[in-house]
Structures are given as C-alpha cells and as structure tokens.
C-alpha cells in the first residue's frame, strides 16, 4: 500500500544512518526559538538525530521540554531557526508555505491530541477530506475512506458525526484519516492524552499495527512512557536537547 517508500528506495534517494533501514528524517543541529511576549525562549538547541523509515519512534520528555516543537518541525508546520532538516532524502529546511503544504499533503499524516475532526462532516467524510488533495475521483476517495475506516474497526459507523462517537473511536477515525492519503510519515502529538489507559493502549497498538500493515513511519510524541512497547526506538528530549 505504501508506494512512496518503494519508490524512494528504487530511486536510491533514501539515507541510512547507522542502520540498514532507510532514513525517514534527519535533524542536523536544529535550533528553534520562540518569543513569549518580549522574552525569547529557546525550545530546541542544536538537535541532531535520525528517524528510521518503517519504524514507530517515540519522542518523550517532560512538559515544556520541546517535544511538540520537535514534532512541529518534523511535520513541516514549523520551521527551524537554524540547522537543517531532511525528510526522505530531501532538504526541506527552506520550503516556502505553499511548497511545505504540498509536501505535507503528499508525505505526512497528522494525529492530534484532541482528534481535531471536522464536526460537521461524517466519519467517512472526515477520512475522505485529506484525499481532496490527491488526484482521485470522488468515488475512489469514498472507497478508500471506507476501507481505512474498516481497517480501524469503524466500518459500521461511517455515516455518524464525530459528536456521536466516543473519544477512543474519534482517535481511531483520526488514525484512519492520517493513513488514508498513504503518507510516508505519520506524526502523532500526544494521541492518547485525552483517553483512558485502556483506550490509550488500544490506540498505540492500533498505530503499531497500522505501521506494520502499511509499512509507514510513525513518530509518536508522548509523556506516557508506560505505553511505549519494549525495544521501540525512543528519542528523549529534555530542555530542548536530545539526550
């Protein structure tokens, strides 16, 4: 299903970093400052790391450590002030707004802490929504949305609205929505923060299963370390530095 990875490997454009697996993302001395009123706050300090393709990588750290900033830069919704970012072998550091949007549409899926589903759309329409950026017919979009909802176990609730289902189900829809455009990378920011422990484990398990099934790269930011399966790649960020 994930043709991007195959294409990238065939082109020989993937970068490996100390592993046989291709490199999904490479941070090189990435620094990011924020302005809080008149005070400049450093969120990331010369962060360098590599995320391997086809893995589920966890980003951990205490609140305010810079996890979300790391994820925002990885997801191309924010830009580093200094340093360099490579995604699937392409230097994306200086992409303009439109080019970054196009890159995100083709390569990156997002899962948010509070699901961020569009309330006026049905579950199927929510999953279908990001496919509007794909060159697909309406019917193909609907079919693919239905297939991904089936994959996350919500095939029977397609016509419901987000307000009519539970938090866990909403996050499943968000997972389906992130997967539907078949991106190379899925970025999940605290996807379990609003869920109870049991549902949180289900969502993490679902993400792991989907990652394996669709051979995509998943990066999950979480402060709930108990949810991280053993032997998973983990990047820990404290005070804006990778430790």
């Amino acid at each position: 299903m994930n043709q991007h990875i195959e294409a990238a490997q065939l082109d020989g454009q993937t970068i490996t970093a100390g592993s046989a697996a291709p490199c999904a993302a490479r941070f090189e001395a990435v620094t990011k400052d924020y302005r809080l009123d008149k005070v400049k706050v450093r969120a990331l300090t010369e962060v360098s790391c590599t995320i391997l393709a086809g893995t589920t990588t966890f980003i951990t750290g205490p609140s305010g450590s810079g996890k979300s900033t790391f994820l925002n830069i990885l997801g191309l919704v924010d830009r580093p002030d200094a340093g360099r970012l490579e995604l699937f072998g392409a230097d994306v550091t200086g992409l303009g707004d439109a080019a970054a949007a196009d890159f995100r549409a083709r390569n990156i899926g997002f899962i948010f802490q509070s699901f961020n589903l569009i309330p006026v759309l049905s579950l199927r329409e929510n999953v279908e929504f990001p496919l509007l950026r794909q060159p697909m017919s309406g019917r193909a979009r609907r079919d693919r949305a239905a297939a991904y909802l089936e994959a996350v176990g919500l095939g029977g609730l397609m016509d419901r609205r987000p307000g009519e289902i539970s938090g866990g189900q909403r996050q499943r829809v968000a997972v389906a929505r992130a997967l539907a455009p078949e991106p190379r990378l899925i970025v999940a920011d605290e996807p379990t923060a609003n869920l109870d422990t049991r549902t949180s484990r289900e969502i993490v398990a679902l993400l792991a299963r989907m990652q394996a099934e669709f051979n995509t790269t998943v990066v999950i930011c979480t402060h709930e370390t108990q949810l991280i399966p053993p032997h998973s790649p983990v990047i820990e960020i404290i005070d804006g530095r990778v430790v």
Binding site: A98, D102, R104, A105, I118, P130
Partner: peptide, 14 residues
C-alpha cells in the same frame, strides 16, 4: 481556528 490549523496541517494551502 483549530479547524483551520488542522486543515492547513493536512497540506491544504491558504
């Protein structure tokens, strides 16, 4: 605003 941010994150242009 949040919906706008979500739509933009999904790769839709301004």
């Amino acid at each position: 605003v949040k919906e706008i941010g979500t739509i933009r994150a999904m790769g839709f242009r301004r």
